[in-house]
């Protein structure tokens, strides 16, 4: 479904991604772990064209996209829904309009279809009654759910999560994590989760990749990771809540 071939991304003198090669088969839940500033978010943003790689190729669903124009990328962004680290809701719109926003832009749908899709997306994130509220009136955890519903309403084939649980308390973390698994399976999406929470990764990932300084230092199934001898992986394992 998704392939990175020797992707290099630089910011000024700093090289963030160093010839990164990565294959993600359809339907997989992949966790990418690493410390702050190792290029995890950059990786997601290059995938949806918010940033462009300096070298290398990115293949999505059989298309090489790294040289796509902004217009061509619109099609890719229909397929790849990104959930941002912050909820990034539009403050001046109701929850309903926030969720409907992408639908109105990407597709020409009859209003009834939009309404039903918004309601089913809100129901999927367990917020069936919030549609008339403003983002400022609901808790941070709920805002994160709305932002998930907004992405989900587009029915993407790929879901991308940028640190979905960073800064949340353990209970909200667990519920967001559970939601990611539930939705990925229910809508059979390919999901890539960028995170630094090993606990979450072990509990729902099909495969985990450990990124350090723009390179992959370890990858494998959760069971493989638990036995890994790579020092950075062991440090992350020490944080796991049992």
């Amino acid at each position: 479904m998704i392939q990175f071939e020797k992707v290099v991304k630089r910011f000024g003198p700093r090289t963030i991604l160093k010839e990164l090669t990565l294959h993600v088969p359809a339907g997989e839940i992949l966790f990418i772990l690493g410390t702050s500033g190792t290029g995890k978010s950059v990786l997601l943003k290059t995938l949806v064209g918010l940033l462009r790689p300096d070298e290398g190729e990115i293949w999505i669903d059989g298309q090489e996209v790294s040289k796509f124009s902004e217009i061509e990328y619109l099609g890719i962004r229909k397929k790849c829904g990104m959930v941002f680290q912050q909820p990034a809701l539009f403050d001046s719109l109701t929850v309903f309009e926030n969720v409907a926003f992408g639908l109105r832009r990407h597709y020409r749908l009859p209003e009834a279809e939009i309404v039903s899709r918004v309601h089913s997306s809100l129901a999927a994130v367990h917020l069936p009654d919030a549609s008339e509220k403003m983002p400022g009136e609901i808790s941070y955890g709920m805002q994160k759910r709305v932002s998930l519903a907004r992405t989900l309403a587009l029915r993407p084939q790929v879901l991308l999560f940028d640190e979905p649980t960073t800064g949340l308390d353990p209970i909200t973390t667990a519920s967001v994590n559970l939601l990611i698994e539930e939705l990925s399976r229910q809508f059979s999406t390919t999901s890539i989760v960028v995170s630094h929470d090993m606990t979450c990764a072990l509990s729902i990932a099909d495969r985990i990749i450990m990124l350090d300084q723009g390179r992959i230092v370890e990858e494998g199934s959760p069971d493989h990771m638990k036995r890994s001898q790579v020092p950075l992986v062991k440090e992350f394992l020490a944080e796991v809540v049992t």
Binding site: G141, P170, I171, T173, S175, L178, T242
Partner: peptide, 17 residues
């Protein structure tokens, strides 16, 4: 216990939703 183990279900679920 719910908080320590980060369980999504429990007496605190409603408050942190």
């Amino acid at each position: 216990q719910q908080f320590i183990h980060g369980r999504p279900e429990g007496p605190l679920t409603e408050v942190s939703a």
